[in-house]
Design a protein around this nucleic acid. Structure first.
Lengths: 230, 230
DNA sequence: AAGTGGTCTAGACCACAAA
DNA sequence: TTGTGGTCTAGACCACTTG
């Protein structure tokens, strides 16, 4: 009376063989049908397990080419993108928020280029500070398509643009990247550090098919760390 | 003559309904069996589609509780972790490598704590520079368990510790995090920048079940950007 | 031309969590 | 207790790629 074999068990066994060198780097491993027979389960179960390992970068699969252990694996790491208030509260701190500036301005060239926004017309430029237990946490510097978030509907005085967008224009596509930047005058002032201090910044671009939504740079207070999982 | 309905098509349709507000934030969506009937496919196909959206953070699923559109979705972003040489070559540049230092030293307390390494015995401390088209790209500052990579077997003079580990101790577990740091004297010297310049750093811890393998800080030259995808 | 992974189906049973 | 997602199975056909 065999217990059912789960795909997680198959994945664990495959991972064990990879780590043990039973399936060395560069080698082709048995095909799904063969493994299914050997391990006593359906091919679909093997497929699920190997597909999962392939998504993590631990295997490479190609039709007809079979499944191989990559010589130089490219692992995937993931991190969560929540609203800032959630980030703060997850740390067990109280989230505070303060709107610093909100005005229409023509965006700088690099923002225009990133968002496919013409050089002339203004966007809505919003600057706000997020606090954790009354200490500066993160400076939000955002350029918004005014058609998406008109000032009348979205004030950003008590709810941040970050949160307003997630609730009202959710599930859009975009890009995200990490950089380190020296604190400029404004960042130094609001994040309570010296000009030139090394700050971690996350830049996001968000858009729908038709139109750009927003470009935002989140500059974190000194020492901030963003963790990812493998 | 119905064409077969693919799980990608189901996912696209579900995403459309989420974005269109057909399934508004907070709402519970029809169960799998119902959707399968409505969309003309097997329940397994619906399951695959909705599971995929749930992994991306666009749906929340619970047994008996059904599937819901989260009010404040926590999206997942992923980025690739390749060896540094690959990173450089992907940018169309030539990778260069230079070993700066390699000596046994007792690690500083924070490294001991991260790796569960006792305070007394030395680890192998390796410092190396990676170049892109002969310009500084990234400084590798690494603490290694000497039992895992003994100097006799792994010289690191022409192959970086980064690459040696991926090839010889692959597929291990660990943590990874981003920070911004001011350039110290050493970083400034090798990365060709001024002391105090803001530099992006990636810190990784790697271990097997039994023993720590390595702690490494990769400090990138000024302006470096790490991109992730949603 | 043929081998291998990708996926769909229909049915079944199970595990978890809500009522 | 019961509804819902999680998963397994056996069989089938298809799509991509390599030989």
């Amino acid at each position: 009376m065999d217990r059912t074999v789960t795909w997680q068990a198959i994945r664990a066994e495959a991972l064990r063989r990879i780590r043990a060198g039973t399936w060395p780097p560069g080698a082709r491993i048995p095909d799904e049908a063969e493994l299914a027979t050997e391990l006593g389960c359906a091919r679909a179960t093997v497929n699920r397990a190997l597909r999962d390992l392939a998504e993590a970068g631990l295997l490479e699969r190609k039709r007809k080419g079979g499944t191989r252990v990559p010589v130089t694996p490219v692992r995937k790491a993931t991190f969560d993108i929540a609203i800032i208030r959630q980030n703060v509260e997850e740390r067990g701190q109280r989230h505070g928020y303060r709107l610093i500036d909100d005005a229409p301005r023509p965006p700088p060239p690099e923002v225009c280029a990133t968002l496919d926004w013409p050089a002339g017309p203004p966007m809505r430029h919003v600057i706000a500070l997020h606090l954790a237990d009354d200490r500066p946490f993160c400076l939000e510097d955002r350029w918004l398509n005014p058609a998406v978030a008109p000032p009348v509907q979205a004030e950003f005085t008590s709810v941040s643009a970050n949160e307003w967008l997630v609730r009202n224009v959710p599930y859009s596509d975009g890009t995200i990247g990490f950089t380190a930047r020296p604190a400029d005058t404004q960042a130094a002032r609001w994040l309570d550090c010296a000009e030139g201090d090394a700050l971690l910044a996350i830049e996001r671009t968000t858009r729908t098919e038709a139109a750009p939504i927003t470009f935002v740079r989140l500059t974190y207070a000194p020492g901030h760390r963003v963790d990812a999982t493998l």
